[in-house]
């Protein structure tokens, strides 16, 4: 994480999205979103279902034309310059089909035959942990195995721009780690990756930068730390009955008081120091004391619940 975050900020973006819009009839699913992804960088689009993530990705993938704004992949238009763009781009759709009557190996080999610079088929199969299943028909694979095969196809052409729409939804924890390793390998090789996910831990594990989407707009974006910083830290503790009330420090927003206290603050350390000093001075026991720095998850929930971004 820390190493990839240091991707040179001067590098030319591999993906440039400007004021992207997309509508279905009267419904505007994507309402003017901008972002850039540089080589060696992972950008995660987060948001609840219907926030516009897939609609935006379909334009990046060149499967739909934008209603407004533009998308450039290495400076080229994914629809108009499809041939040039596709030879260096890999994509995994949120739901996509594989013919059930081909084996894993046949599926990978025939797909490789359509690509400019395919990886070795056996190696690609091994990388998603399907070596032992190479001669099994796709029909007989589990959902997770099918998803991993799908991913193997998505990156079979050695893409340097990768778009993954919910790559690990429905995968067990072990498969998910396998997918993460694969993504990390590609990023280390210089690929620019955009992904959507429902799993915040996935974004935390992989993403250098994150944007949280709501109703077609980016409500929050930045590094995980930057996004987390938009939210207050939380201090929780419980006081026994009869204990005096602690003085409330100035930087605190009181969410609940005795016996179970919850304070929100943007100055966690001084607030905590003040609280502990008070407790020591009065011989008070702070039961279940908990101090939590702001997290990506907290920001995500704040956006989902409408506590952030209504003004935007």
């Amino acid at each position: 994480m820390q190493t990839t975050a240091a991707a040179p900020s001067t590098a030319v973006p591999a993906i440039e999205v400007t004021d992207l819009r997309r509508s279905y009839g009267d419904f505007e699913a994507v309402r003017g979103i901008p972002f850039e992804v540089r080589p060696g960088e992972v950008f995660a689009l987060l948001g609840v279902n219907g926030a516009g993530k897939t609609s935006a990705l379909e334009v990046l993938e060149g499967l739909a034309a934008p209603g407004g704004g533009s998308v450039r992949i290495h400076g080229a238009d994914p629809v108009r310059d499809r041939t040039a763009v596709r030879s260096r781009m890999g994509m995994l759709l949120q739901s996509s089909g594989l013919p059930g009557d081909l084996t894993v190996a046949e599926t990978v080999r025939s797909w490789a035959g359509t690509l400019s610079a395919p990886r070795d088929a056996d190696e690609a199969i091994a990388q998603v942990g399907l070596t032992g299943r190479a001669d099994v028909r796709v029909r007989s694979l589990s959902g997770g195995e099918r998803r991993r095969l799908d991913l193997a196809l998505a990156v079979l052409g050695r893409p340097d721009v990768v778009v993954l729409d919910e790559p690990t939804t429905g995968l067990d924890p072990e498969s998910r780690r396998q997918v993460w390793r694969l993504v990390q390998d590609m990023v280390d090789g210089g690929a620019a990756v955009v992904l959507t996910t429902h799993h915040l831990e996935e974004a935390e594990e992989l993403a250098d930068r994150v944007a949280i989407l709501k109703a077609g707009r980016i409500v929050l974006s930045g590094t995980q730390e930057e996004i987390a910083e938009t939210q207050p830290a939380v201090v929780r503790f419980t006081l026994d009955a009869g204990t005096p009330q602690p003085p409330v420090p100035t930087a605190v927003q009181v969410v609940s008081t005795g016996p179970r206290y919850e304070w929100h603050t943007r100055a966690l350390q001084p607030v905590l120091a003040e609280l502990l000093a008070w407790a020591a001075e009065h011989g008070v026991v702070l039961r279940y004391l908990q101090a939590t720095a702001a997290s990506l998850e907290q920001a995500f929930l704040a956006v989902a619940e409408g506590r952030v971004g209504e003004a935007a």
Binding site: A84, S87, R88, S116, A117, D160, G190
Partner: peptide, 26 residues
């Protein structure tokens, strides 16, 4: 590294008939 910086160095890959054959074969 070359591939990430320029399109020109990308191998040209299978001809159109060859890639059509691969997909039609499946």
């Amino acid at each position: 590294t070359d591939m990430t910086t320029t399109t020109a160095t990308r191998p040209t890959g299978p001809s159109r008939p060859a890639r059509l054959r691969a997909a039609a074969g499946a």
